[in-house]
């Protein structure tokens, strides 16, 4: 645990130093070369030629890119605050990539203006832009490696310590049912479904050009099905094990035998952590995300990653699964 906090502190300090350092560098570069720059500095180049099509006074050329960078870093910091530490690999990647890109762009811009009397004479060779983008990509890739490798591996789950377990009285059979629904997805499924059905009916009746109707029917029907699939999920824990059924029809279904589920727990997760809504694969394992909040997280035998499903009352579902595993025959 000590390990984890010291690692986290190192990442925090590293991020803060990088943000401040890059901002300082971006702001200082034009001033450092101010003696050899024109009064207005060329800051924007058209895509077709290497001639500039936009300029700024020196102070703006120094502050505007630095402010863009600080705002971006602030947005990343806010997202991390909201979603927690699990989002770290992409945070480091984003900050390293965009910071390197902005510093590279600033260096290129200052270098292009250097020694010219008028900003119209500044030329920006394409190769500099390419070099800046490649450097940014390398830095971003390095950040990803750093973020994923430096992260402490999830603790191996020891039984009977932190997992909740339910007392099953002798001779009693306990079953647990739960579900979660997302009204937004239900509404989306209903609306798109209505459009698809109308288009389908018009198609059958021959009311309009078939080409147009097909182009309405197919995408709307697909979106409706996808939204309905993400709109609700049901979970059931009984002596047979865990069963997770998707969508309004309760199909498809995933099942695990009770003896295969080594540990279960409840955890709060947000769609940002899981990577969105629906059936998500991420560094957390598989997450069936219908709505943010309480999730039942299980670790099954023969499965490398964990499986999580967002359902209400997950605490007791986990407790029952742990109790069933403890009472397993043999």
């Amino acid at each position: 645990m000590n390990d984890r906090t010291s690692h986290e502190r190192a990442v925090h300090w590293g991020t803060a130093i990088w943000t401040a350092g890059a901002a300082g560098l971006i702001a200082a570069l034009p001033w450092a070369a101010s003696g050899r720059l024109p009064d207005r500095v060329a800051t924007h180049w058209g895509s077709g030629s290497d001639a500039p099509d936009g300029s700024m006074p020196l102070w703006a050329a120094s502050l505007v890119p630095a402010l863009i960078w600080l705002v971006l870093a602030l947005v990343v910091a806010l997202v991390v605050r909201r979603t927690g530490a699990a989002a770290r690999p992409w945070t480091v990647t984003t900050l390293l990539f965009s910071g390197t890109l902005l510093v590279g762009a600033q260096i290129s811009a200052v270098r292009a203006n250097l020694g010219h009397g008028d900003w119209h004479q500044a030329r920006l060779p394409t190769v500099w832009v390419v070099v800046a983008v490649v450097a940014a990509a390398v830095a971003g890739g390095g950040g990803w490696v750093l973020g994923t490798r430096g992260r402490p591996t999830p603790r191996p789950v020891g039984r009977g310590r932190r997992e909740p377990a339910l007392a099953i009285p002798e001779g009693q059979r306990l079953v647990w049912f739960s579900r979660a629904t997302n009204p937004w997805f239900q509404a989306l499924a209903a609306v798109t479904g209505l459009v698809a059905v109308s288009a389908g009916a018009a198609l059958v009746g021959g009311l309009a050009a078939p080409g147009l109707l097909w182009s309405l029917f197919v995408p709307f029907a697909l979106v409706s099905l996808a939204a309905a699939g993400c709109a609700s999920v049901q979970a059931r824990v009984s002596e047979q094990g865990l069963e997770v059924a998707f969508g309004p029809l309760g199909w498809p279904v995933r099942r695990w035998a009770a003896r295969d589920i080594e540990s279960a727990r409840a955890e709060r997760r947000t769609p940002a952590q899981a990577g969105g809504w629906g059936y998500r694969l991420s560094s957390l394992g598989t997450t069936v995300m219908v709505r943010g909040g309480e999730c039942l997280v299980v670790r099954a035998r023969d499965m490398r990653a964990e499986f999580a499903v967002s359902v209400d009352d997950a605490e007791r579902g986990a407790a029952l699964l742990n109790a069933l595993y403890a009472h397993r025959p043999g």
């Binding site: 647990w176 049912f177 009352d313």
Partner: peptide, 9 residues
């Protein structure tokens, strides 16, 4: 929801 069936019932 949690349901209980007593097998001795």
């Amino acid at each position: 929801m949690l349901l209980r069936l007593n097998q001795a019932d």
